[in-house]
Computed example of a mutant assay.
Amino acid sequence: MEQVKILFVCLGNICRSPLAEAVFKHKIKGTALEKIVKADSCGTSNYHIGDIPDSRTIANAKKNGVEIDHYGRQLCTNDLEQFDYILAMDNSNYQNILRLAHASHHSDKVQLMRNFDPQGKGLEVPDPYYGGERGFQEVFDILDRSMDQFIAHLEEVHLSGAKA
């Protein structure tokens, strides 16, 4: 079975996208998907290259039983070639991804994360950076339910008919 590569993208790669990556990895742990999926996250900006995620993101993830192991990195043109799914947290970063050189050849890979949210298809994952704990929990809840639908999509597309 061919490896499936997923990239979660936000602005700084310290709040939403590393949390999305961690929630995803947590949910697929021990499943057939874990054997065929590689997930990563990055930011469209260069603000936090090499930094660990925001301490509030780490604390919120831990409170919800999810561990984060990630260092910030910036999106690059090569990511368009390397990844099969590129999930942007908001419209601004979605547009930033599509501005990369040769992005038009890969636009079918780029989607909004909340396209998989049964309670908010097409909406944005809000940036909790300037808010408090409630904002971080809201982001976790959005990613948690969106990830369930995304995982169901991956299972249908990449595991149907395959032995788990």
Rank of each mutant, 00 (worst) to 15 (best):
Lys5Gln: 03
Leu7Tyr: 05
Val9Gly: 09
Ser17Met: 13
Ala20Asn: 12
Val23Glu: 09
Val23Gly: 10
Phe24Lys: 06
Glu34Val: 06
Glu34Asn: 07
Lys35Gly: 13
Lys35Tyr: 08
Ile36Ala: 11
Ala39Ile: 01
Asp40Thr: 08
Asp40Gln: 04
Ser41Tyr: 05
Ser41Gln: 08
Cys42Ala: 15
Gly43Asp: 08
Gly43Tyr: 00
Tyr47Thr: 00
Gly50Asn: 03
Ile52Gln: 06
Ile52Asn: 00
Arg56Gly: 05
Arg56Thr: 03
Arg56Cys: 08
Thr57Asn: 08
Ile58Ser: 05
Ile58Pro: 07
Ile58Phe: 10
Ile58Cys: 01
Ala59Thr: 08
Ala59Trp: 04
Asn60Trp: 07
Ala61Val: 12
Ala61Arg: 03
Lys63Gly: 07
Gly65Ala: 04
Gly65Trp: 04
His70Trp: 12
Tyr71Asp: 08
Tyr71Phe: 15
Gly72Tyr: 05
Gln74Gly: 06
Thr77Cys: 15
Asn78Tyr: 05
Asp79Thr: 04
Glu81Thr: 13
Gln82Glu: 12
Phe83Ser: 03
Phe83Met: 04
Tyr85Gln: 07
Ile86Gln: 03
Ile86Tyr: 03
Ser92Pro: 07
Tyr94His: 13
Ile97Gly: 11
Ile97Lys: 10
Leu100Pro: 01
His102Ile: 12
Ser107His: 13
Gln111Cys: 14
Met113Glu: 10
Arg114Cys: 09
Arg114Leu: 06
Asn115Phe: 13
Asn115Ala: 15
Asn115Asp: 15
Phe116Val: 02
Gln119Ser: 09
Gly122Thr: 10
Glu124Thr: 14
Val125Glu: 02
Pro126Cys: 11
Pro126Gly: 11
Asp127Thr: 07
Asp127Met: 09
Pro128Trp: 14
Tyr130Ser: 13
Gly132His: 11
Phe136Ile: 14
Val139Tyr: 00
Asp141Glu: 04
Ile142Asn: 01
Leu143Asp: 02
Arg145Trp: 01
Asp148Glu: 03
Gln149Glu: 07
Phe150Glu: 00
Ile151His: 00
Ile151Glu: 01
Ala152Gln: 02
Ala152Thr: 02
Glu155Ser: 02
Val157Trp: 05
His158Phe: 01
Leu159Val: 02
Leu159Gln: 02
Gly161Cys: 00
Gly161Ser: 04
Ala162Tyr: 06
